[in-house]
Computed example of a mutant assay.
Amino acid sequence: MALPKDESVPGNFTAAPPEEEEVRPGQNKSFTREESNKLGGDRALVSDFKQMKLEKEAQKNWDLFYKRNATNFFKDRHWTTREFEELRACRQFESQRLVLLEAGCGVGNCIFPLLEDDLNIFAYACDFSPRAVEFVKQNPLYCSERCCAFQCDLTKDDLRENVPEGSVDVITLIFVLSAIHPDKMKLALENISRVLKPGGTVLFRDYGLHDHAMLRFKAGSKLGENFYVRQDGTRSYFFSKEFLAELFEEAGFQSVTNNYVLRETVNKKEGLCVPRVFLQSKFTKPGQLQTS
């Protein structure tokens, strides 16, 4: 499930073009005293009753999101191959067929640019929202010979019902895990591990701790530590690199890279600039990759 506002700040902000965007991998940013006080003052959590209701209605809320926005909300992610060189580097030879799983495909803003760019990719694509999956299947670029889309709750639906066990070279988790309740994140990772080849790779990108979006939540939106709910009922977790590394290691993965990426989202017209913090990581499944 591709997360709302994952690459922009709500309002009139848009991401700066790469040549105008400051990118600083490494340590996370720090909050100002005013920002820390704002977050520190928001100690009250959403009631247990509402939290249970949000969990129960999570799929409905995502379906409503796609009903409202259809395929018009997200821009196609043409930056994926630039940010994740592993999509090419993991092959032993250029013409090798790569089997990809996009866990949380949304309406296909990531997989279709990849399929256009690389004719030697076969992509499995799943999403929590049945409506999002239907949008993927209705895309003119969708072809069953190169792509297989299906609905799936990563926390409870066995991926092996649609994807052969140990058959996937690369799995992408891009602005997906943050929408899952922290107590169930490990279940999702164990699920994807079953279809990943030994030596296969998970490419991760999601909200980092101290991202500007954390400050935009109003009082009454906090579900737990670094976990918030939006007005539309969809939820967002903000990751520290330590939490993420521990989470993947507990699910049996090995960490290769795990860094914050700091960017600036700008509005030239209004002369405004806000800091964004993402966590970009690479994990592998222990064992030797079996190439086809």
Rank of each mutant, 00 (worst) to 15 (best):
V170M: 06
R146W: 04
K197F: 05
G199P: 04
K268F: 15
R216S: 05
T81A: 08
F204Q: 00
A70R: 15
G200A: 05
P17D: 06
H181C: 12
D157G: 00
W79T: 01
S47K: 07
S144C: 09
R33I: 14
Y228M: 04
E270W: 09
R131M: 12
C105A: 15
N267C: 14
D232G: 09
L3P: 00
G41T: 03
K50A: 12
K50C: 04
K186C: 04
K218Y: 12
T155V: 14
L215E: 07
F93A: 11
S292W: 09
A245P: 06
G224Y: 04
C152P: 03
P275H: 03
R77C: 01
S129L: 07
L87E: 01
V23T: 14
V176C: 12
P17N: 07
R276T: 03
I111Q: 00
E19Q: 14
L39N: 02
T71S: 11
E242T: 15
Q254L: 14
A89F: 06
T291D: 06
L87G: 01
L87S: 02
D48F: 12
A58C: 11
F13T: 06
E35A: 09
H181W: 11
D157K: 03
E270C: 00
Q51A: 13
S240T: 14
L196V: 06
N12L: 14
A132S: 13
P17T: 08
K75C: 08
P4W: 05
S236W: 01
N259M: 10
V163W: 04
T172A: 02
V195I: 09
L64M: 11
V133A: 03
S47N: 00
C143G: 14
T32F: 05
K222I: 03
T172S: 09
L100G: 02
H181R: 13
R91F: 07
F74L: 10
S95H: 12
N120D: 13
C143L: 14
A15L: 13
V261T: 09
A89P: 00
L100F: 11
S240I: 03
D6A: 10
K156Q: 12
E57C: 09
A89K: 12
C90G: 00
L154Y: 02
C110R: 06
